[in-house]
Design a protein around this nucleic acid. Structure first.
Lengths: 131, 131
DNA sequence: CAGTATCCAATTTGATACTG
DNA sequence: CAGTATCAAATTGGATACTG
């Protein structure tokens, strides 16, 4: 209904806050992207991403599954085989994220230019604004 | 243009990563929303939001200004008056964020239901998935 | 008014090693 | 293979007090 959550960003259960937290996560969007082309196993995801430790991958995957964005299917075999698959809900998230991505790419230079102006023309280039 | 940054989520300078980091921030979206209706002063923003400490507000505002999403105008008066104002770039960000917000609200119940299913029907309700 | 300065607690992230 | 267990490092967030 028309209930406005705006201003409720403090509430960790506000749907907007929930999804903002998810996609703000370093790995979430990447994992969703990777799963788009089909289900993958734990180590396949791990290698596809590179740089993620098993612990972090596990917790990210769990969060995604808890929110219903992906499913986890453990096949009772030996050696074990577990497949992670994007749900329809997870797939549907790609569209709004793409919108954001397009905005980001379209305005990347504006942001970069602003940052350079901000840090000053003759300042060390390695510096970046605090986040 | 066609250059794909997908898979470059590690690079903190990847435009998508940049914007995902920004809007994933607890206060950013809220501040942008609040500034929509007109420029505000430091303490006006602070009170409008509530719960943010000056230190955090300062750094958030600095980041936003560095990326060109808002401007900071200090008027040489006493007592000092500083106005923060949304830039066109900042305003333009509201649309993709709204798309995301709509998705979140549309799918909030699906996520909530999934979480409940995930934690089990008879488990403590205070628990939430790790993020 | 619009911040800054300190300090601290909590959360995250990761490296590394180990196991059902 | 698909994780878990530990531990350490780093990044935040916030409380509180003070200042140009």
């Amino acid at each position: 209904m028309g209930i406005s959550w705006e201003g409720n960003a403090f509430d960790p259960d506000c749907p907007t806050r929930v999804i903002l937290d998810r996609i703000g996560d370093k790995w979430t969007v990447l994992i969703i992207d990777i799963l788009e082309s089909g289900p993958l196993r734990f180590n396949e995801i791990r290698q596809a991403i590179g740089g993620i430790t098993p612990k972090v991958l596990t917790s990210t995957l769990r969060s995604l599954a808890a929110d219903g964005l992906i499913t986890r299917e453990a096949h009772a075999e030996v050696p074990p085989r577990v497949e992670y698959r994007l749900t329809d809900l997870g797939r549907s998230l790609r569209e709004p994220v793409s919108t954001l991505r397009r905005w980001a790419e379209l305005n990347a230079s504006a942001i970069t230019d602003s940052r350079e102006r901000d840090s000053g023309p003759d300042e060390s280039r390695s510096r970046r604004a605090p986040r």
